[in-house]
Simulated scan of single mutants.
Amino acid sequence: MYLNIFADTTAPLDMTGTDEFRSLLASAADLGIPHAPDVPYASCNIVLRRMRFHFLAWGRPDAPPIVLLHGGHQSAHSWDLVSLSLARRYRVLALDQRGHGDSEWSRDVAYANHEMSLDAEAFITAMGLERPVLVGHSMGGRNAMLLTRRSQHLLRALGIVDVGPEVSEKGRAAIAGFVQAAQEFDDLEHFVRKVREYDPYRSRAHIERTVKYNMLERADGKYVSKCDSNPRRLGIVRGTGPMENITLDDARSFDLPVLLVRGGDSNILEADAAERFAAALPQGRLVTVPKAGHNVHGANTKGFLEALEGFLEAVA
């Protein structure tokens, strides 16, 4: 049984009258995040590459477009506070990537970053977006970099959140351990405790509000992850070959504005690796957000928004 509301047809579902949206507005007010209570917000579906994808659409259709790609074991809702704030000025489209959130699982277990990058490219094309800003976190950042290497002419600018050509294997192992331990629970309280152990920067109230987007209630009463449990889907096992990995030499060919955001206490993107990545980018800018680990935009949403909005104004 699903715990959240989303469109179950091809018609967009207005989310602004739901308790979920009212809860989000309350969270934004508590955290002091600038937002508009009457922003357009809808749950939508689209068929891409013979699969059904769910996405969240925020803001006016004629506003400058931003596409958001979430990290592994997360969903489009991981961006909700960011999307709510950005939607005052931008059209924000947050995609549930294959095997995640409310999108379809891959029938052939094709969860390579290359495949996901092709999904994102197909989404941009199918939605008729004219050179959007593409922002990706962790797994979504890897997918965004692969898309950029292949088709950067489609993009106005790129935002990469706490990932790069060089990542910490210790941090990768920590993520893998959390994911493997977060597959099945007797109750939601157990899941909340596990998330708090992994990400102490997020408040308990915020985790409780978003738990519905990460879990399903099974027929036997247990709660299970909404994500496809096959380990290939998360990028935990590093891909092999040039189609799956971005190098610093690849980054030197990214001839567009790029914002690299690192969490000040990140265990994935170490400070020296972030500096090497930013130095390789012809138009790169590195911003380190304090009081945040790997999940930068969830841990310090205001700090993340300050970095991103300054970048967006510069590339407008």
Results as ranks from 00 to 15, higher is better:
His137Asn: 06
Glu130Asn: 15
Ile175Met: 15
Ala157Phe: 12
Arg49Ile: 01
Pro282Tyr: 02
Asp255Leu: 03
Asp186Val: 11
Leu134Pro: 11
Ile207His: 03
Phe254Asp: 00
Lys291Pro: 12
Arg91Leu: 02
Leu3Arg: 00
Ser43Arg: 01
Leu146Trp: 02
Ala122Trp: 00
Ala57Asn: 11
Ser168Arg: 02
Ala280Asn: 13
Gly128Gln: 08
Asp102Asn: 08
Asn113Leu: 09
Met15Gln: 10
Asn230Val: 10
Val224His: 07
Asp220Pro: 05
Phe304Met: 05
Gly221Val: 06
Val224Tyr: 09
Arg285Gly: 00
Ala174Tyr: 12
Val167Trp: 05
Gly72Arg: 11
Gly159His: 06
Pro64Trp: 04
Met127Trp: 03
Ile160His: 10
Glu309Val: 12
Tyr213Met: 11
Glu130Ser: 15
His73Ala: 08
His70Gly: 00
Asp108Asn: 14
Val287Ile: 13
Phe6Trp: 13
Arg252Pro: 03
Cys227Glu: 03
Leu154Asp: 02
Ile236Tyr: 11
Gln152His: 15
Tyr213Gln: 07
Val211Thr: 14
Val315Pro: 13
Phe185Asp: 09
Glu309Asn: 14
Leu216His: 07
Arg233Pro: 15
Thr18Glu: 04
Ala7Asn: 05
Val258His: 12
Ser103Cys: 14
Ala122Val: 04
Gln283Cys: 13
Ala157Val: 13
Gly293Ser: 11
Val161Arg: 05
Glu208Cys: 04
Glu169Leu: 12
Glu189Trp: 06
Gly177Tyr: 01
Glu121Cys: 07
Asn143Gln: 12
Pro65Lys: 00
Val82Gln: 07
Gly303Val: 13
Tyr198Thr: 09
Leu286Pro: 01
Leu25Cys: 12
Val258Gln: 08
Ala94Thr: 00
Thr148Leu: 01
Trp105Arg: 10
Thr210Cys: 14
Ser85Trp: 06
Leu69Trp: 00
Ser27Tyr: 14
Met15Cys: 14
Ala126Ile: 03
Gly101Glu: 12
Val258Glu: 13
Val135Gly: 08
Arg98Asn: 02
Leu305Trp: 04
Met145Trp: 08
Leu81Trp: 00
Ala28Glu: 05
Ala219Met: 10
Val211Pro: 15
Thr125Cys: 04
Leu93Asp: 02
Phe21Leu: 06
Arg149Glu: 02
Phe178Arg: 11
Asp119Asn: 02
Arg196Leu: 15
Ala299Leu: 03
Arg204Leu: 10
Arg238Tyr: 15
Ala76Tyr: 01
Gly221Ala: 04
Ser78His: 07
Pro37Trp: 10
Val261Ala: 09
Tyr201Phe: 15
Ala182Asn: 03
Asp8Gln: 14
Val224Pro: 03
Ser168Val: 06
Leu93Glu: 02
Pro34Asp: 10
Ile33Asn: 06
Gln180Lys: 11
Gln180Ser: 09
